[in-house]
């Protein structure tokens, strides 16, 4: 199990990197953390002639919280590791969902090397971060020699392991918007072994009003279709008391998920089981998210949100 030969490039700046990518064309691949790409190379499922190592590109390893008027967001550079995002205290404070989800991404050793942006553009239908980006309506910035564009989560992923990236484009940064209002989030998943890709995973974002009643609820799913699925769950739960709702009130959100999603069979689970799980996990995650929204609303009472 050894990879095919390739030419190795290690640009030092974004300009150099995109110039290199433009030069190698279809024959090239970006090499980030290598946690998804190298297994494929080792098994010779892929054999690009050129690899462009972006790990030492200047300025790409930052994790920042920015507020540019349009609202706050967490910006993650293309060389930042999952670990860096997971352990960033500021990020955890403004957008706990990232840590909630990242704890389910593989094992710490993989997270030490794998990049958050790499995961997004790899677009595995089981990747937690794509669902998080989709749930929050985030985006990714793509650069090439001809310019730069910002693509939304919904445009980014076009199919399983397929994105709208052109071969000459480098993803430089991901932006995860911080949701407005009294919000709470939760990530829940079932995987076969701890750390495995989920059989079914769901992230939920619940917004509550000042009376602590559910104003809106949204969920995003992994392993439930070819791309991250986002569902608006507001209808069945709108207006219920976010803190004290009975489990069966949340079950309605679960039923909606089961009805709407169209997962596939694979060797680890049937589609029917996945659909069932989506219902159970949606209800659990929604309830947890709502409780957190209530807690956060309490914390921020009086303060601007």
């Amino acid at each position: 199990m050894k990879p095919s030969a390739f030419a190795y490039h290690r640009p030092g700046t974004v300009d150099e990197a995109v110039a290199t990518l433009a030069g190698v064309g279809d024959d090239g691949k970006v090499l980030a953390g290598g946690q998804s790409l190298v297994p494929m190379l080792n098994m010779r499922l892929a054999a690009p002639a050129h690899l462009v190592d972006v790990n030492r590109v200047d300025g790409l390893d930052e994790v920042r919280v920015v507020d540019d008027g349009a609202g706050a967001s967490v910006r993650v550079g293309a060389a930042a590791r999952h670990t860096d995002v997971e352990h960033d205290a500021e990020v955890a404070a403004v957008l706990p969902l990232l840590r909630q989800a990242l704890e389910h991404v593989a094992h710490p050793t993989i997270r030490n090397r794998g990049t958050t942006v790499g995961s997004l553009v790899h677009a595995d239908p089981a990747a937690e971060l794509n669902a998080v980006l989709a749930l929050l309506g985030g985006s990714v910035t793509l650069r090439s020699t001809t310019g730069s564009r910002v693509v939304n989560a919904s445009e980014l992923v076009t199919g399983p392991m397929q994105t709208c990236l052109r071969p000459d484009e480098l993803a430089t940064e991901a932006a995860f918007p911080v949701p407005q209002g009294h919000t709470g989030t939760a990530w829940t998943e079932v995987s076969r072994r701890a750390g495995d890709y989920a059989v079914c995973g769901v992230g939920v974002l619940v917004t509550v009003d000042d009376e602590l009643r559910v104003r809106s609820a949204r969920a995003a799913y992994v392993s439930m279709g070819p791309v991250p699925e986002v569902l608006d769950l507001t209808e069945p739960v709108a207006g219920i008391a976010a803190g004290g709702a009975r489990p069966d009130e949340w079950a309605a959100a679960g039923r909606l998920a089961t009805a709407r999603l169209e997962p596939d069979d694979d060797i680890h689970a049937t589609a029917a089981y996945r659909g069932h799980l989506a219902g159970v996990l949606t209800a659990r995650a929604a309830r947890a998210a709502a409780e957190r929204a209530v807690a956060r609303a309490g914390d921020t009472t009086g303060a601007s949100t």
Partner: peptide
Amino acid sequence: TVLVDGRPIRSCLQFAVM
């Protein structure tokens, strides 16, 4: 698993040149 700059990583998923 080896430690690179103190952090554990999978050495089978890295190229030495990196």
